[in-house]
Computed example of a mutant assay.
Amino acid sequence: MKIYKLALNDIKKFLYSLDCDKSGIAIMSKKAKIHTLFIKDLHVGAANILKQDALSIGADLAVPEGVIVAKERYVNALLLGTTKHFEILSRKELAQPFGLKELAKNLKDFVKEQKFSTKIMGVLNANEDSFFKNSRFDNSNASQRIEKMIEDGANIIDIGAASSRPGSLPISCDEELNRVKDIVQTIYKNRFFEKVDFSIDSFSPKVIEYVLENGFKIVNDITGLQNDEVCSLVAKYKAQAVIMHMQNNQTNMQEKPYYEDIMLDIDDFFKQRVEKAKSFGIEDIVLDVGIGFGKTLEHNLKLLKNLEHFNHFGYPLLIGASRKSMIDMITKSAIEDRLSGTLAIHLEALKNGASIIRCHDVKEHFQAIRVFEAINEIN
């Protein structure tokens, strides 16, 4: 007998290769992954009930000392268990008091499998003040830049005409539209829509309506659908909406950003904006936690490490950290020298649940992602 430890990314695939019984595969695959769920402000009565119920099925709940004698009325706790454990608890706690019924309804969302194909969103900026100069272009070289991105492996091309870098000043809707019009017509004339999807990085209804009328399919809104008129347009054209989180606005977002709990605060934001989108009839949604948009380095790192949390919404997750200043905060580097750091962040984001990567360097990301996926496909 010989033994070695396996790192399995697709437990079902491996169990099939062992020729296991199909019903057994369904059961065993749910026992293979351990989940850790942080529960904040849990009623002490709920903590005691959940602790006993978890232990009875082989899971566990880490709680502070003094819970058994109800030292504090509300506590924080960590629920540990497999997918199977969470499914059992989601049924078991439905009849329990102290808010456990609500917890039970949410447990399954945190362990359901999400399968979205990986896409690369290339960035092109039709303005002169975007923070990375190599992403800037005008209509004279639009065709060549777009053709190169498609050749390099882009699935989506995101066109922006107004800078959203920290401290940038807004421009008029007419100015933004003037920067976009000729480029949109170039895209249309060259039939690039047949090769990739195009996204508009804008929150201006005037610009958004123009591009959607001319073949664009995605609205990448850094305000997270704040404007009702934008919501109406996205619904009218059945476009995909990228809901991004940003604290305050681009002019002041980096002035001492603060959160009670960044994970919960952004989760609440997404809940509200997804509900709003649905109320307008928008169903095709992507979520973006907004790396660098009103966040400190610590905020950004926490979001990246715990990105999988946001999978419970059931929508694709987009990450865009391309050449951003957080890399410079970790290791001093000019914008032009941050490709390595960008790739490290984006591959970690894919590992933690992202499926759309917004980047300036499409060719390098295509190669890195293909290698990353090849490693993770092996069982």
Rank of each mutant, 00 (worst) to 15 (best):
V63L: 15
V63E: 01
V69G: 02
K71W: 05
E72R: 13
R73P: 00
R73N: 15
L78Q: 07
L79E: 02
L80R: 13
L80I: 15
T83K: 14
I88D: 02
I88Y: 12
L89A: 03
S90F: 01
E93T: 12
E93S: 06
E93P: 01
E93N: 14
L94K: 15
L94N: 14
A95R: 13
A95E: 14
Q96P: 01
L100H: 07
K101R: 13
K101V: 08
E102L: 10
L103C: 04
K105W: 09
K105N: 13
L107K: 06
D109S: 10
D109P: 02
F110E: 00
F110M: 00
K112V: 09
K112F: 10
K112A: 07
K112I: 08
E113Y: 11
Q114Y: 12
Q114W: 03
K115E: 14
S117L: 12
K119S: 14
M121A: 10
V123D: 04
A126R: 00
N127M: 09
E128D: 13
S130F: 01
N134D: 15
N134C: 08
R136E: 12
R136Y: 10
F137E: 05
N139L: 10
S140V: 07
N141L: 08
S143T: 14
Q144F: 10
R145S: 11
I150S: 06
D152S: 12
I157Y: 08
I157S: 05
I157M: 06
G160L: 05
A162S: 09
A162W: 00
S163G: 03
L169Q: 13
L169Y: 06
